[in-house]
Design a binder for these strands. Sequence first.
DNA 1: TATTGTTATACTCTATAACTATA
DNA 2: TATAGTTATAGAGTATAACAATA
Lengths: 118, 118
Amino acid sequence: MRADLARRLGDLDLRTTDASILVLVGANPGITQSYLCKMLEIQRANMTPLIARLDVRGLIVRAVADGRSQGLALTDAGSDLAATALSAMYAHEEYLLSLIPDEQRPHIMPLLSSIWRE
Amino acid sequence: MRADLARRLGDLDLRTTDASILVLVGANPGITQSYLCKMLEIQRANMTPLIARLDVRGLIVRAVADGRSQGLALTDAGSDLAATALSAMYAHEEYLLSLIPDEQRPHIMPLLSSIWRE
DNA sequence: TATTGTTATACTCTATAACTATA
DNA sequence: TATAGTTATAGAGTATAACAATA
């Protein structure tokens, strides 16, 4: 399942984490790196090169929030790519669901929800 | 789910891959590294240090099969640890199943089977 | 020629500690 | 004193290329 998503996002030159960041920043403009770290459970030290790479690619901009923190936002190119990445994520989910026989399909989400985070 | 299994096996000083190797060698005495690589989809080059570490720990022995290949087998200590690791794997599965409400539980395996490898 | 196991190497992901500059 | 971001570093997983010994 992870490989299928990675392949779809790889076609956009994105890793899974890159895509998550783009979509989250798109939905939360002005978000800080620290808050992104909490949402994605990534160490601060490891977020730095991730953001730097998206910045270099012209997908994200950093604006000074206070002296310590930077509010992140998508560029137009970043916004376009985030939309494409989100479509790829939905296509991934649709693909997985399509593998499940019709009559069983309604059961999968409640089942997975009962395992998630507990 | 992976973290739960990793934690349980970590208590035995085993990584997930170590445990898979021990259980497979236990079930297939005389198996070669190359065949293990095919079963676990691991590169030959990466199998070398994995086997070496299990060897150093006295869990596995290598016997010359032909001039190129070595048949692997468990030592007594390896056999004991493989059994404990297998129990941990079953406990992991039981734990996950226990999170699913009784009436939904019979649906999970057929559902996952329809996604697996297709 | 092909296969087994090895070595060397490189890239990614993840984790910790220490530093700076701010609050 | 705590927080945001950075740098440096180390461990683990994974990938490729090349080699020696053997089939």
